[in-house]
């Protein structure tokens, strides 16, 4: 299990990286943390002809507060550093909660925040969270840049709107209003393993504990992370009662997901646990919102 050879570029700045990507076009591939890519290369399932390694570009690694109270996270920030960032802990406890489910500690040490999102693994936690939080993705290419909504970034399994000559440079996380609670739950066979189903949710309540906003993403039950419409439709404007949450679960499972049967779970099982996880996740998010987030 040894990788094929490839041309290797180690730019030291974003501009140099973008020049290299522009030059390579379809032959180039960005190497971020490499924790999925290098494993696939060792199996020779991935055979990129050239890698542009961003590990020598320090300007891509940061967690910075934004003026509106949100955060900007550089694409090469290690998951470990996001997990341990005081700025993140303060604003987005969901990211801390989800991090401990991402593979194992050694992978999080090396794996990057942006790399995981751009990899768009349907079973990956961070791609789902980027959809849920609608993180604003800054995509750069030589002399150009564009912003894409997190919910529009992923277009298929392992597929995003990012072109070969482009790179995901930064993710901007908008601040949450007061009385916002969040939660991530998953069922996986083992710690650090792929989830057979996972649900993350963010709920904002008004002063009267009615639901002002409710977002929910369903993971590992379709080819891409599924942003539920039902959570918003049913909960917003109403009290998030047990009955209402159960209705969301019922509708989400019957109308929004399309789980597959694989080695580890039948489609039916996935539906069954998704229903359970939706209830658990929304209930907990509501509780946390009531406690002030």
């Amino acid at each position: 299990m040894k990788p094929v050879n490839f041309d290797y570029y180690a730019p030291s700045s974003v501009d140099e990286a973008l020049d290299t990507l522009a030059e390579l076009g379809y032959d180039g591939k960005v190497l971020a943390g490499g924790q999925s890519l290098i494993a696939a290369m060792n199996f020779r399932m991935a055979r990129p002809s050239a890698l542009v390694d961003l590990n020598n570009v320090p300007e891509l690694s940061y967690v910075k507060p934004t003026e509106d109270g949100g955060l900007a996270i550089g694409t090469m920030t290690r998951v470990f550093d996001v997990e341990h960032s005081a700025e993140v802990i303060k604003r987005f406890p969901l990211l801390i909660e989800v991090s401990k489910y991402i593979a194992h500690p050694q992978i999080r040490r090396r794996g990057t925040f942006g790399g995981a999102i751009a990899h768009a693994d349907p079973a990956g936690q961070l791609p789902s969270i980027s959809v849920l939080m609608n993180m604003q993705a800054l995509i750069k290419s030589k002399g150009e840049e564009r912003w894409v909504d997190g919910q529009d970034l992923i277009i298929g399994p392992f597929m995003t709107v990012i072109e070969p000559h482009e790179m995901l440079a930064e993710l901007v996380l908008k601040p949450w209003p007061a009385r916002t609670g969040s939660n991530y739950v998953q069922v996986s066979r083992q710690s650090g393993g792929y989830a057979q189903s996972a649900v993350a949710s963010i709920v904002t309540l008004d002063e009267n504990e009615r639901c002002k906003d409710a977002r929910m993403v369903l993971m590992s039950v379709g080819e891409v992370p599924i942003l539920s419409q039902k959570a918003g439709e049913i909960l917003v404007g109403n009290a998030p009662t047990r009955e209402a949450i159960e209705e969301v679960a019922e509708l989400a499972v019957t109308t929004e997901i399309d789980p597959a049967t694989d080695l580890h779970a039948t489609a039916d099982y996935r539906r069954s646990i998704t229903r359970v996880l939706v209830v658990r996740s929304l209930t907990e998010a509501v509780e946390r919102a009531k406690r002030g987030g």
Partner: peptide, 11 residues
């Protein structure tokens, strides 16, 4: 037995 198989048995 995976949890999924236990689920199928219980059905």
């Amino acid at each position: 037995l995976s949890p999924s198989q236990i689920y199928e048995y219980l059905k």
